[in-house]
Write a protein that binds this DNA or RNA. Structure first.
Lengths: 186, 186
DNA sequence: GTGATTTCTTGATAATTGTCAAGTTTTATT
DNA sequence: AATAAAACTTGACAATTATCAAGAAATCAC
């Protein structure tokens, strides 16, 4: 868990009090493989950090199942549209492996921010980081062939190719399962 | 300018002091059409809000000129990779019309945040908003045909089609200029 | 305003990728 | 371990989109 903070904000280590404050609003939870952690159409009020396991965020477009995010150890996930805009989410979230997570209720987080405004800094740094991640993802999608997209992801997150069903990676990369299979087979 | 704040955080109106503090670090600047506001390869340390005019953020991929962001009145722009990560940017920024902007030095902004940590809240809300914008953009790109992408943008930002050269919109939508032209001609 | 440059359009063709279908392999259940 | 279900692979074909090329239209510079 410490790694998660380390990843996103070195400030944590300058003040162990911060870790304590955050741990106070974090709840440890477990899910089984294939469990649905969040269902589309409902409001998601939690933010999750993974201790172990792997999850995906996805939605349906014209009955096709599209993965938009993978999260493994130390990564975070949530139904981001719902969490930020406080509306029903278009996304669902599924455990792809048995999962141990730390769950943070967004209201608790906002209360903490109100009580200790200096922690907003952490929230901002975190958002800056995931914003950059998203910018990269757009670049990857906007201008690369299927083969290039495959290779980029293989370089960035090789473990996905061992731990996740191909069809989910294919949809994440915006290509058909057949095209994915042909690329993999060289 | 007030509209920019209104767009991103209603909190501003609960406390006019905030506007004042921000205005203290904002500098008014003008650019001529075709001016390069920022060149790739250099570090960008400013964040811009447009009072009037239109700009684009772009980069070169294999000698092709790819637009990744348009900004018009009340919108903001910067070389986001550079600003957040403090490294040389891959992006350049061009004025597509005569431009009046408010420019904020990122260091000044961070100093303001240090002096008044409660303003981090504003930074976080702003990032949340542009994060959601980006999520939508990925959805638009990942799973829509050229025609659909054209229609989505036409609905969301019709003014671009009147004010911006087609080739820039085409690259922004991830399609060739010829395909763009054929879709437009119905 | 005239010529030069850039942008846009249109056609022909080629390349990429998706869809459908059938068979194979892998995984899950009992 | 046997069976059922799900996931993956492969081929044939179709659809989409890019590329190249050439001409038309629009914009820019003097």
């Amino acid at each position: 868990m410490l790694n998660f903070f380390k990843q996103h904000a070195s400030l944590v280590f300058e003040n162990p009090q911060i870790v304590e404050d955050f741990q106070e609003i974090m709840v440890s939870q477990k899910f089984k493989k294939h469990d649905i952690i969040h269902s589309s159409g409902s409001v998601c009020s939690h933010f999750y950090v993974i201790a172990s396991g792997l999850a995906r965020v996805f939605y349906y477009k014209e009955s096709k199942d599209i993965t938009v995010h993978f999260a493994a150890e130390e990564d975070s996930f949530t139904a981001i549209d719902s969490l930020i805009q406080r509306k029903k989410s278009k996304y669902s979230i599924e455990a792809l492996e048995d999962l141990e997570v730390f769950s943070i209720n967004f209201n608790d987080l906002e209360l903490l921010f109100e009580k200790k405004p200096e922690y907003e800094h952490f929230g901002r740094l975190f958002l800056q980081q995931i914003y950059i991640d998203l910018v990269e993802r757009i670049d990857d999608l906007q201008l690369h062939s299927t083969k290039e997209r495959y290779d980029i992801l293989l370089t960035k997150k090789p473990y996905l190719f061992k731990r996740v069903a191909s069809k989910h990676i294919a949809s994440f990369l915006g290509m058909s399962a057949e095209t994915f299979s042909r690329i993999r087979g060289k």
